[in-house]
């Protein structure tokens, strides 16, 4: 594999981790969130600061990073208990803008210059770069997928599904909306934090603009395109949207346009996502299955 392919693969793996986190919040718990990149950023900044100014190793910082992102996710998830739909959607956009401004304007976070000199991850005494780091990201992605899968099978997951479908009915069955929505927020934002930490140690230099609203849109597009609320949807979405610009790379000038146009076409003609119900993939799959039986 060329360095270039490895770099793209690493980006895709990291974004898939972040998208899985958003899937927990939006797909499983039904809470709209348009500011997920904020938590991606919080994870990246937390890990960057802990490993540079704080002197921690990546592994020492990681639990703290997950805790910090999850905790901020909990606090910023509170509006979702009061606000509905469009208000919540716009509020989460606002949270994204405000978090980015804090990174940009508070000197502690390095201001417009961002944070540099972030050390590489050291595992078994070797500094990970290139392929080994890609494998580390894939291992974390596998772990995140495992956690997502376990979550969908846990009572907490079922409680979230019920809340997504009908909050009043769910709470009449003993599901506390506060507790389980916030649980989904903590889990989803902690996953974003993990992605952020990996991103920081991969780039070794981060700045606030990496985590702006366009990134949130990108992550949400991955989840929606792949199939919201499905286990593999976000991973597929990250793969498709991560590869598209590379596929179009020879067409430098039209690359971004084709990307946007394709996103538009996909959302227009497969709004349920590539793996969602009544999607083309599902239909073909079920036809094949039906064919076998006959």
């Amino acid at each position: 594999m060329s360095d270039y392919t490895i770099t793209i693969g690493t980006f895709i793996a990291i974004q898939a981790i972040v998208a899985c986190g958003l899937n927990v919040i939006v797909g499983y718990a039904g809470q709209i969130s348009l500011g997920h990149a904020a938590f991606f950023g919080i994870g990246a900044y937390a890990s960057a600061l802990l490993t540079t100014a704080g002197g921690f190793s990546f592994w020492g910082a990681l639990p703290l990073v997950l805790f910090i992102t999850g905790f901020i996710g909990l606090v910023l998830g509170l509006p979702s208990l009061r606000l509905k739909e469009d208000f919540l959607a716009i509020t989460t956009i606002g949270i994204n803008f405000i978090v980015v401004s804090v990174f940009l304007y508070v000197p502690f976070f390095g201001g417009a210059l961002g944070i540099g000199g972030i050390p590489r991850v050291i595992l078994f005494g070797t500094r990970l770069r290139g392929t080994p780091f890609l494998f580390l990201c894939l291992a974390f992605l596998a772990a995140v997928q495992l956690v997502s899968w376990l979550f969908t099978r846990s009572w907490s997951g079922l409680a979230c599904f019920a809340l997504r479908e009908d909050e009043a009915a769910a709470s009449s069955m003993g599901v506390s909306p506060v507790r389980f929505k916030l649980a989904a927020f903590i889990l989803g934002t902690a996953m974003a934090g993990l992605g952020g930490a990996l991103y920081a140690h991969f780039m070794r230099f981060i700045s606030a603009t990496d985590f702006g609203f366009p990134m949130s849109v990108m992550i949400l597009s991955m989840v929606v395109l792949g199939g919201m609320g499905t286990l593999w949807g976000p991973v597929l979405g990250a793969l498709v949207l991560g590869m598209l610009p590379e596929v179009f790379r020879p067409l430098t000038e039209y690359r971004m346009f084709l990307y946007a146009a394709l996103l538009l076409l996909m959302i227009r003609f497969q709004p349920g996502g590539l793996l969602g119900e009544s999607s083309l993939a599902r239909q073909i799959f079920s036809r094949l299955k039906g064919g076998e039986k006959e």
């Binding site: 348009l34 959607a89 949400l220 929606v224 039209y254 971004m256 346009f257 996103l263 959302i267 709004p271």
Partner: peptide, 18 residues
């Protein structure tokens, strides 16, 4: 509502690029 919203954002990007 997030489906038309994503459609709208894609439109914004596509037109800007155009």
């Amino acid at each position: 509502p997030y489906v038309p919203l994503i459609g709208s954002i894609a439109c914004l990007l596509a037109i800007e690029e155009l």
